[in-house]
C-alpha cells in the first residue's frame, strides 16, 4: 500500500475540545479505531490535513444500563459490544452484528461511532490511486461518472456498516455534539440516500452516544449477513430483525437492511405483517417487502440480483429462527 500521507495529529482530552477542533479546522477528520479511515488515507481516498484522535477522550467508552434503556458511548469497541453479557442476552442483534465485523484485530480497535459513520463502499471507489486514475475516477471521488450507473447523476455506493440495522430495529437514537450545542436524533435520520454524502452529520459534529430504549422482554432480535469471505468481509447484504411472536403470531416485527442501499434502511410495511400467523404466506410477503426496498447496484463483484434475493432469504430465515418457526422443507430448499 502507498505511504501514509502527512497530517497534523491532535489528541483532545474531551468531546468539547474535539468539537472545537473540528469547527476550527476545515477538512479535519475524527479518528477513532481508524480501521477504515487509515487504509483509505493510504489509498489516497481521504486526505485530511488534520486528524482529531479521540483515543485520549476517556468518557466515551462506557456502556451504561438504566431503566430507560442502554447508553453506548461512541468509543465503545465492537469487541466490547460482542462480549458484553447483557448485550448478548438482551440486545442480541447488536452483539451479533458487532461480532460479524471483520476479525478480532479490527474489532478491538473499531468503535460503534466509527461503524455507524462508516463511509459508503463501491468496487470503483475502494481501490488504489492508480486503479482509480486508470478508470478516470468516479462520481464519488474525483470524477464525473458513476461507473455503476453511467446514465445517471447519482452515486450508488453502498452503506456497509453492520451495526446500523441492528440498532435501527431496536429503535436507537444518536446524540450529536457540536460547539454550539447537542442534539439527539433517531438513528434513521443520521442517513440520507446519497452515496457521496450519506451522513446528515454536520462537519463539526461528533457522534457521542447511542441510546437504545428499553424494550419488552418478549422481544428477540438477531443479525445475519451474507459475505464473499466468511472470515472477514463487508456484507453483500445484512439483515437485522426484531420480533415478538406469541403462539405463532407476529405481535411485533422490525426489519432493517445494510449493504444494499446507500443508507441502512428500516423496512416500511412490516406493520402489515403484524397480527399474522407465521406461515409460508407471511414469509413470502416478508420476502417481497425486502426485495422491493433493497436496491443493490453493481457496487460489488457479486451480482446485485443475488444480493437482493439473499437479503430476502436472510430475513425469512432470521424471522423463523427468532419466532421458533420451522419452515417447510420446500421453503428451506428454496431459500
Amino acid at each position: 500500500m502507498e505511504r501514509m500521507p502527512q497530517f497534523d495529529l491532535r489528541r483532545p482530552a474531551s468531546i468539547a475540545e474535539a468539537a472545537a477542533l473540528l469547527a476550527a479546522e476545515p477538512g479535519a477528520r475524527l479518528l477513532a479505531g481508524g480501521t477504515d479511515l487509515l487504509p483509505k488515507m493510504r489509498r489516497g481516498i481521504e486526505r485530511p490535513p488534520v486528524l482529531v484522535d479521540l483515543g485520549a477522550v476517556r468518557d466515551i467508552s462506557r456502556i451504561d444500563y438504566a431503566d430507560a434503556g442502554l447508553a453506548l458511548g461512541a468509543g465503545v469497541t465492537l469487541s466490547q459490544l460482542a462480549m458484553d453479557g447483557r448485550i448478548v442476552h438482551h440486545h442480541r442483534a447488536i452483539a451479533e452484528a458487532a461480532r460479524s465485523v471483520a476479525g478480532p484485530g479490527h474489532r478491538s480497535a473499531a468503535t460503534i461511532g466509527g461503524n455507524l459513520c462508516l463511509d459508503t463502499r463501491c468496487v470503483f471507489y475502494n481501490q488504489s490511486e492508480w486503479w482509480r486514475a486508470t478508470n478516470h475516477y468516479c462520481l464519488k471521488l474525483g470524477g464525473d461518472v458513476c461507473h455503476v450507473a453511467p446514465q445517471g447523476s447519482h452515486c450508488h455506493a453502498a452503506f456497509c456498516g453492520d451495526l446500523a440495522p441492528a440498532l435501527l430495529v431496536l429503535g436507537a437514537s444518536v446524540e450529536l455534539c457540536a460547539s454550539r450545542g447537542a442534539r439527539v436524533i433517531p438513528l434513521s435520520d443520521l442517513y440520507r440516500d446519497d452515496g457521496v454524502a450519506h451522513l446528515t452529520l454536520e462537519p463539526d459534529e461528533v457522534l457521542v452516544r447511542v441510546l437504545v430504549p428499553a424494550r419488552s422482554p418478549a422481544l428477540v432480535s438477531g443479525y445475519r449477513k451474507a459475505r464473499a469471505r466468511g472470515a472477514i468481509d463487508f456484507p453483500l447484504a445484512g439483515v437485522a430483525c426484531a420480533v415478538v411472536a406469541r403462539n405463532g403470531v407476529l405481535a411485533e416485527l422490525k426489519v432493517a437492511l445494510t449493504g444494499t442501499n446507500s443508507r441502512p434502511i428500516l423496512l416500511t410495511g412490516t406493520e402489515a405483517l403484524v397480527g399474522r400467523v407465521i406461515d409460508e404466506a407471511t414469509l413470502s410477503a416478508l420476502g417481497k417487502l425486502v426485495q422491493k426496498q433493497a436496491s443493490p447496484m453493481r457496487t460489488t463483484v457479486t451480482q446485485s440480483n443475488y444480493r437482493r434475493q439473499v437479503a430476502a432469504a436472510l430475513a425469512q430465515r432470521l424471522v423463523c429462527e427468532l419466532a421458533g418457526y420451522e419452515p417447510s422443507a420446500a421453503r428451506a430448499s428454496m431459500s
Partner: peptide
C-alpha cells in the same frame, strides 16, 4: 499492509490489534 491478513498482529493493552492500521502516536 492494509489490515487484511493479520501478519502484523500485536497486543495493545492485551487486545489483538493490527499494527499496520494503527498510528504509533495513538499508542501513547
Amino acid at each position: 499492509d492494509g489490515g487484511e491478513c493479520g501478519a502484523c498482529t500485536v497486543l495493545i493493552d492485551g487486545q489483538p490489534r493490527l499494527a499496520c492500521i494503527t498510528l504509533a502516536a495513538a499508542c501513547e
